[in-house]
Design a protein around this nucleic acid. Structure first.
Length: 265
DNA sequence: CTAAAATCCTGGTGGC
DNA sequence: TGCCACCAGGATTTTA
């Protein structure tokens, strides 16, 4: 489900209720989601204190005491809530992290694609991720350099987390629209001036989406409203806001793709 | 090599 | 109302 702006929004919301708390237990309703093993998680997590929470790509990272790191990936339908232990049970809560203050962190995930990792070495989880698009150190020249020797279509490359981290289906389509580039463009055909505008578009779209607390959908609503500002995503059949031609939909890399065939070259 | 398709899953929607 | 095909914000693996 969530891409960089949604994960960032979740992280910001979890800091206040979680930092300084300790895990006391973990209840696992879907063992397949525990990527680093049910036994290890049950044994090693209780007693660990949450020192800080941040994000790397689409992974939430909990920095714990004793140099442990807990990573959560929400995949398509995951979400996280901190609620009192006495709250009504949630049928979609696949993993429940008990805390030492009569509250618990619930990993809600209807589609069960989400994953939990508890590790000592963070690189085993995030070691291969590409650069963070919003890091100040990530300059336009760094972005341009990424494209050398790359082949194929633009969109699948931007979705590759080892190329650049954090982008997903929505924000790739929106960024391509803003840059005036078709998602299906061949990498080799991209001019430097186009990569510059793509770089700017990605930063602009992600920052603006974070300001709106990300995007919400019917079945995963978390308060964000950037879905009301989509230019092309999910708007196939509607008219382009810039040129009034029809927004098209195609399938690229197995993903639904939205673009304006007039504005995007 | 690239690229599409299948896979992991549930749930909502729209057509008939 | 029921049934069914299809769709979904991700990412990896298999097949062509």
């Amino acid at each position: 489900m969530p891409e960089l702006p949604e994960v960032e929004t979740v992280v910001r919301g979890l800091r206040k209720p979680l930092i300084g708390k300790k895990f006391t237990d973990v209840i696992i309703h879907w063992p397949n989601s525990i990527a680093t093993g049910v036994t290890r998680l049950k044994k090693d997590l209780p007693g660990k204190k949450i020192l800080s929470i941040d994000r790397r790509g689409k992974y939430l990272r909990f920095n714990l005491s004793d140099n442990y790191t807990l990573f959560l990936h929400l995949k398509m339908s995951g979400d996280l809530f901190v609620v009192p232990t006495i709250s009504d049970p949630d049928p979609h809560a696949r993993t429940i992290f008990s805390l030492n203050n009569k509250h618990e962190l619930r990993f809600k995930d209807p589609r069960k694609f989400g994953r939990v990792y508890l590790v000592k070495d963070p690189n085993t989880v995030i070691g291969k991720l590409g650069p963070e698009p919003l890091e100040p150190a990530f300059k336009v020249q760094n972005f341009i350099n990424l494209f050398s020797k790359r082949k194929g279509r633009l969109k699948p490359l931007l979705l590759n987390q080892n190329f650049i981290s954090g982008l997903g289906n929505i924000y790739v389509d929106e960024s391509c629209f803003r840059a005036g580039i078709r998602p299906a463009r061949k990498i080799e055909s991209l001019k430097e001036v186009e990569l510059v505008s793509l770089y700017k578009a990605i930063k602009y779209i992600l920052q603006r989406a974070i300001k709106h607390n990300g995007s919400s959908f019917d079945y995963v609503y978390r308060g964000g409203n950037f879905q009301n500002h989509f230019s092309v995503y999910g708007r196939n059949g509607e008219l382009c806001s810039k040129c009034k031609n029809e927004i098209k939909r195609s399938v690229l890399g197995g993903r639904s793709t939205h673009y304006c065939s007039f504005c995007q070259k």
